[in-house]
Structures are given as structure tokens and as C-alpha cells.
Design a protein around this nucleic acid. Structure first.
Length: 430
RNA sequence: UCCGGCGUAGCUCAAUCGGUAGAGCGGGUGGCUGUUAACCACUAGGUUGUAGGUUCAAGUCCUACCGCCGGAGCCA
């Protein structure tokens, strides 16, 4: 007899094993009783027939409530009638704790109720599948950069001053002074890129914007590579390779989860080279073609992004936005002083922006002028300007939003399911 | 912050024109030897978000507040 996990049950056919987990659901037709177990790795149906198990075990069925914790021992067998093709012929059950009446029943619930019970909702099969995909996406990010010689150099969470100005930061006490929660590791990444060549950081970021949409969280995770000696072109190639790598890894390793989520695999399998690349100007023309009233110089709204992303069957790269739409550190396009050497990547099927980035301003004089123009505090940026004083080189980078990527790959319609405990405008519980 | 919507049983919802608050699931009891969100029968369960108002009569109409959901702006 051995303790096993449900995901390896097919290797133990005909032998006696013990499953440690929770009761997911139960059904009975009198002398024949079914108990579905959950152990974090999968689901397994257990079967008991009166007379084939001792009466004590048989009647435990009545006591065991949904989500009661237990150990179940029995013989693994194949049966086409069992979900997943295998089942456990129960010999004994050892209850660990009989669960109180479980609030999440096998029927429908509203989102507000489920979010109030997020700590339990995570046990449900779809939520479980989404977070397994998240795990795969994160590992793929790390593997991608590691395989290419990037160094993980994390940026701080506490920052001394607003960096980009426009977005709102969470303010927090810092001993006798103030500190702000980071909204991007990028500026620090530029410093570490000058030390290590190619770097990335991966961590939580915080935005205190009062956004109330399915595409926003106040706390989200972002992976940000930054590369010395990369120009915009190199960066577009990297972003394309990166997204393809992530999608391929999920397709290879998380088939089961995508099936639980009923994701259309055909759509994901189209994510390959080359991604369409259009300029901001071309994007504006597309929007006008679609009959939109759109003036050059505006930034794209959520609806515009959706329209653009629906035009293509794979992620689309949009580059060279007007300078005024972008942050101060973007490098001006030498071919057109109105444009920034930047890129956004929009996920298909209407999901919209998952990557934003570009080539950074590497000239000390230009950067100082941009900081002045945006009326940002020059003193706060001295360390950042030092990077242009001491061996400045062309460099570029981008940030990929983990939750947006997971939401798209999983085909979900709201970002809140792509993170274990979402922090949103009106939700910080549980 | 602005715009729109919704608050009825533990959950998801219904209740016609203002006229005795109802169903499914979940809970309880009983039945069923292959169930797949099992099924069948019975059963318990309600200060209709809160506070006022109109009316013979309010879940329903009016006012305010609270909570939540969706969208906009901002962005990943």
C-alpha cells in the first residue's frame, strides 16, 4: 500500500493506494455509493458497494460532507464509466475533519458571492485550472529569460518618489517619511541592465488608479526585461519570441486545464511567427476604416484596442506612438520627432494590451529636457540620469502583465480570476 | 470620480396593473446496484439592503443612504 497523488493514479492500476484529500462531491443509488475525491492534483471517483466494504465504512458516506478532509484507501481500477477513466474501489475511509456546511454548492453562484469566498473558490475546478496555467506562464517567463542568458535582478517595491507622474501611486509610511509602492521596476531595470547587460525583474506592481474594469487590478504582477544594446527592432523580435514561448509551453503542459476551461485551442495554436506589425499611424487608419471618429494623437481606448486586436488572428505589435501619449523616458524616433520608439502588443480575440515598452532615451541632454517638459522633480532622477553620464548605451525593454496574459490564454473574461487573491478598487477581502 | 444596472430563503432567481412571498439547488428524512452538477418523494427555511414617505393595502411607487456589479478615463 502506498500514498499517492491523484495525477499519478494511472501508474497504480490493480494496486492498493491511499489518497489524502477532500470530498469534492458524492452520489448514491442505495447500495452503490460514489465519492469524488480531490487532492489538489486532480479528481478521482471512489466507489463503494454494500457488502463489499465493511458496514462502518459504507455508512461513513452519510457523515461525510462536501469538502470534508479524509484519507481513502482502495484498489485502483480502470473503468470507462468513471470520469477520467480510473476509479478507486474503496476499502477504508479515515475522516480527518467533517466539514461544516460548505457555502459553494455544485450549482450556480454570483461573482460577488464567489469573490467573498475566494479562499474557498480556489478549490473549484475552473479556478484551480486558471491558477495552474498561471503557474505555467510564470515558469515559462523565467525559463525563457534564463535560457537566453538574462539575469533576474529584482527591483524594489518601496520607492522614494513618483517616477512617471501621471499614474497614481499608493502612499505608505516609511518610518518618519513617506514611501510609494512601485508601479514599475523599469527605471531600476535600466540601472541593472547597465551592470548585467540583459536583465529582467518579476514582481508585484501597484496602481492606485480608481479603475473599475475587467482589465484592471490595483495589485498585479509584471515581468519586465531590459536589454543594453537593444533597439526597438530587437525588442519587437524578443517580445514576439517571448509570447510564442509562453503560449507553446501552456499548450504543451496544461492541456488538461485548458480542457477544463473549454478553451478554443485552435485560436491559441495560431500564435506563431510572424506577428503583424503596424505603426500607430496605420492603426489609426484601421480605426477610421472601421468608421471610428479618431484623431491622430489620441491614445487608444479599450474599445479601440478591442477593434484592432479583432482584426488579427494572433497578437499584433503596434509601434511608434505619438511621443505625447508615452512616458518621458521613451526615446524620440530619429525619423520623426513626433513619434516615440515604443511598442505595445495587443492580444487577439479582443483582449487588448498585454505588453508595453520601447527603446529608452539614452541621451543625457534629451532626457533632462523630457523631465523638465513633464515638470518632474529633477533631483529625484539624478541616479537615473547618472546612467546616461557613465557609459550610456542604446537600450530597451518592456513589461508583460501576467494576469492579462493568463486571462487571455485561459479565455476568461475578467482579470480577477487570474490571480489568487485579487486586489481591486472595492475589494481587499479576503 | 462619472454613467448605467442590481439588492427577495444559505445560494441562483421568480412574484402580471400596488392586492395572502414562490421555485430550483443546498440542508434534513426516506428510496434507489453505475452515478457523472445523479435521480424520485417528503420536509424545514423570509423583518424582501437600511431609514423615511405615499396608499385601505408596498417586494412592487417616491426620497435619501449603504453595498455590490458592469462600463468610461488611466494603464499591464
Amino acid at each position: 500500500m502506498s500514498d499517492i497523488y491523484i495525477d499519478e493514479v494511472s501508474k497504480h492500476i490493480g494496486t492498493e493506494v491511499t489518497i489524502k484529500g477532500w470530498l469534492y462531491n458524492k452520489r448514491s443509488s442505495g447500495k452503490l455509493r460514489f465519492l469524488t475525491f480531490r487532492d489538489g492534483t486532480g479528481l478521482l471517483q471512489g466507489v463503494m458497494l454494500k457488502g463489499e466494504v465493511d458496514d462502518g465504512t459504507f455508512s461513513l458516506y452519510d457523515e461525510l460532507t462536501q469538502e470534508s478532509s479524509l484519507k481513502a484507501t482502495g484498489i485502483v481500477r480502470s473503468d470507462p464509466r468513471a470520469p477520467g477513466g480510473h476509479e478507486l474501489g474503496i476499502r477504508t475511509i479515515e475522516p480527518i475533519q467533517i466539514a461544516a456546511e460548505y457555502p459553494i454548492t455544485p450549482k450556480e453562484h454570483g461573482v460577488a458571492f464567489l469573490m467573498d469566498h475566494r479562499h474557498l473558490w480556489l478549490r473549484s475546478s475552473k479556478q484551480h485550472a486558471v491558477l495552474r496555467v498561471r503557474d505555467e506562464v510564470i515558469r515559462a517567463c523565467r525559463d525563457f529569460f534564463t535560457e537566453r542568458g538574462f539575469v533576474l535582478v529584482d527591483a524594489p517595491i518601496f520607492t522614494p518618489a513618483p517616477s512617471e507622474g501621471t499614474t497614481t501611486l499608493f502612499e505608505t509610511g516609511y518610518f518618519d517619511g513617506k514611501a510609494y509602492l512601485t508601479q514599475s521596476g523599469q527605471l531600476y531595470n535600466e540601472a541593472t541592465a547597465m551592470a548585467f547587460g540583459r536583465v529582467y525583474c518579476f514582481g508585484p506592481t501597484f496602481r492606485a488608479e480608481k479603475s473599475k474594469t475587467r482589465r484592471h487590478l490595483t495589485e498585479f504582477w509584471m515581468v519586465e526585461p531590459e536589454m543594453a544594446f537593444y533597439d526597438l527592432e530587437d525588442t519587437m523580435v524578443l517580445a514576439e519570441d517571448f509570447i510564442i514561448f509562453i503560449v507553446q509551453r501552456v499548450l504543451e503542459n496544461r492541456q488538461k486545464e485548458l480542457a477544463v476551461l473549454e478553451r478554443d485551442l485552435e485560436k491559441l495554436s495560431k500564435v506563431g511567427k510572424p506577428f503583424p506589425r503596424i505603426t500607430y499611424g496605420e492603426a489609426v487608419e484601421i480605426l477610421k476604416d472601421e468608421g471610428k471618429d479618431f484623431a491622430w494623437g489620441q491614445d487608444f481606448g479599450a474599445k479601440d484596442e478591442e477593434t484592432l486586436s479583432l482584426r488579427f488572428d494572433r497578437p499584433v505589435i503596434i509601434h511608434r506612438y505619438p511621443l505625447k501619449c508615452k512616458a518621458f523616458y521613451m526615446k524620440t524616433d530619429p525619423q520623426n520627432s513626433k513619434l516615440a520608439l515604443c511598442l505595445d502588443v495587443l492580444a487577439p480575440e479582443g483582449y487588448g494590451e498585454i505588453i508595453g515598452g520601447g527603446q529608452r532615451e539614452d541621451s543625457l541632454r534629451e532626457l533632462e529636457a523630457k523631465i523638465k517638459k513633464d515638470k518632474l522633480p529633477m533631483e529625484a532622477f539624478q541616479w537615473y540620469l547618472d546612467l546616461r553620464r557613465y557609459g550610456s548605451v542604446p537600450h530597451a525593454g518592456f513589461g508583460l502583465g501576467i494576469e492579462r496574459t493568463v486571462t487571455w490564454i485561459c479565455g476568461r473574461d475578467h482579470l480577477r480570476e487570474a490571480i489568487p487573491f485579487p486586489r481591486m478598487l472595492y475589494r481587499i477581502y479576503p
